[in-house]
Design a protein around this nucleic acid. Structure first.
Lengths: 191, 191, 191, 191
DNA sequence: AATGAATGAGGGTTCATTCAT
DNA sequence: CATGAATGAACCCTCATTCAT
């Protein structure tokens, strides 16, 4: 009766899960978490509402799923830095962030907003904390390799800078002088 | 003609309006705009749901009200800078921001989150833009007086920094090394 | 302490009452009874909401007031027929109705809709019945004078005709051939 | 793929839709459109309020649904006239209308009241216009076949008559001499 | 006689979630 | 695994009505 092998099943499962995740990410990014309904996500993903609940227990669970997905994306970004000189790594980090801000403002807004989730969503808060910490760790190692005197403070400094630019850019949009700021940051680190 | 004198009326009106505004501010800050219901605000303010609509045409109008209220607060903050030396003004700006982040994290979160509202709320976006621009203008003038070579870029740079610190601090909470970053910023500007 | 004489008071009372009534009539006619709020009426009449309740116990009471007012208007219309020949009276009745349909469609709609009020408003139903009956009586007497064989049936016939024209005209608006129908009716009665 | 077969689903959907439609029709007819709440309709239909919105996008949409439903009824009525002589068709039209007035006064009231909705409901107005026009067209053709000199005017005349009788009967209820008027109309057309 | 702040019930509508199939 | 009809709670908002002054 079962025409599909367990592996095929598993693959299909994973694919559907990913499709839901990506659809939700797009929707959340464009319209905001609260303004996006499960109905809408299901329709966009081409599946039924009920099926969504086979893959995710709740809307909040879906949010968690997206977060982890995003997390793995940023892992990929970090992977791109491999086998580069520390200088180059630093430069690329800044470049990639500015690129992202410019090209995916919706996604950027969504990710930034995650940090401001109300206190209710405790587990998500933990995840976000961990992620932020990881980013800081990467930066810290970088500044350490580059022999900066206070690498951790420097890491937080850079992190804050990039977050702040994202926030300002989202608020002022085209009026925000992204290029000038980028220049200034690169100069600051003599890149 | 009026049995309750116009002044009494006016006073009562203003007081109730302020109570709603403050209650809403607290609620929005703690739970987020979308997650806060008018019902909740009314209950917290000790008034009926309907009365809220006597003072504000809609939930979004209430948000605008809060924003303008906050705006006037920040006007007061700027006023504090008067009659100080430029150096002192710069130092105070940084100090006050860090103070705010530490003492009113909820409020800070609310203000930061305003920039992340979905695009739907166009008028709010305009208000936020104007406010951000004003802040940048103040900073620019400051850096101009201090003979910085690119005062405007410097202004955006400082603005981004402070916003980024707020964001990071809200995400990492007690784990965020506010003091160290503050030190670093003050050093950067030789304050 | 009382600067106004009782008569002046009385006069003012009556005037205010009339203003409310006329304002409500206009609003009900234009927007419909359900869609018109007491607030709106009060504002249009230039008085406070509370005062409205000094003159009318409820919104429904206001509707009754309007009905009686309208009733007296139609009394005036009937008065115009005095000292005219029966033929002329009949002709004028038809002419005046068509005139009204054309010039005051909103009011016509309101009056017509009164006849269809839900069963809830029993007292109004009674009033309407009485008014319809009066109209029929006037017509009956007319046809009686004109020696029609079945004056009462003829009266109902004419009444239905005029009501039906009003209804059709309200539905089809400019597309309704008011002139042609009027011609036909006048011909029917050889006027 | 679907566990409930599509046909089952379709059938269930149609049945529920019809139940809502019929319940709403009854309620609108008895209490009027504005005075009927979706809550009430849902309760009467034995379903949840939310489900109503699964089938109709809004209260106004529900009204449209009813209108179209009624429209198809009147189509059936017209179908009954087929294969009858013109005289007979005319007679049947009058008979059926009087029958309807007597047996379904609520429904009649609802249909009549449609023409009196405030101008806000533009799309409905269009539908009503079309329906009225169709009725007139049928009458016109009839009178044309019967060689009346001005068939269209005659059609409007008959339409107005029947509408007016409905209105009068709804207002005066048992006091309205339906039989006498019917006689008079049939006589008028020598039926 | 007059005001308008305040109430509270209810309206239309949305949506996360469940469940029979 | 998959569907979508159904639920019910909550949401934003309106408004007739009351009442202290």
């Amino acid at each position: 009766m079962s025409p599909r092998s367990p592996e095929q099943n598993q693959a299909q499962r994973e694919e559907t899960r990913q499709r839901i995740l990506m659809t939700a990410l797009k929707a959340f990014a464009e319209k905001g978490y609260a303004a996006t309904s499960i109905s809408y996500i299901a329709k966009e993903a081409g599946i039924s509402k009920g099926l969504t609940y086979h893959y995710f227990n709740s809307k909040e669970d879906l949010l968690h799923g997206i977060f982890h997905c995003l997390n793995s994306f940023s892992g990929e970004a970090i992977a791109l830095l491999k086998n580069k000189s520390p200088q180059e790594q630093l430069r690329l980090t800044v470049e990639m962030t500015f690129d992202y801000i410019q090209k995916n403002p919706d996604l950027m807004r969504f990710m930034t907003s995650l940090a401001l989730q109300p206190d209710a969503m405790v587990t998500l808060k933990e995840d976000i904390k961990m992620h932020k910490q990881q980013t800081i760790d990467v930066y810290t190692k970088l500044f350490s390799t580059l022999n900066y005197p206070a690498p951790e403070a420097e890491a937080y400094y850079l992190g804050a800078m990039l977050d702040g630019v994202a926030l300002g850019s989202l608020a002022l949009q085209e009026d925000y002088p992204l290029a000038a700021i980028k220049e200034k940051i690169l100069n600051h680190y003599q890149l």
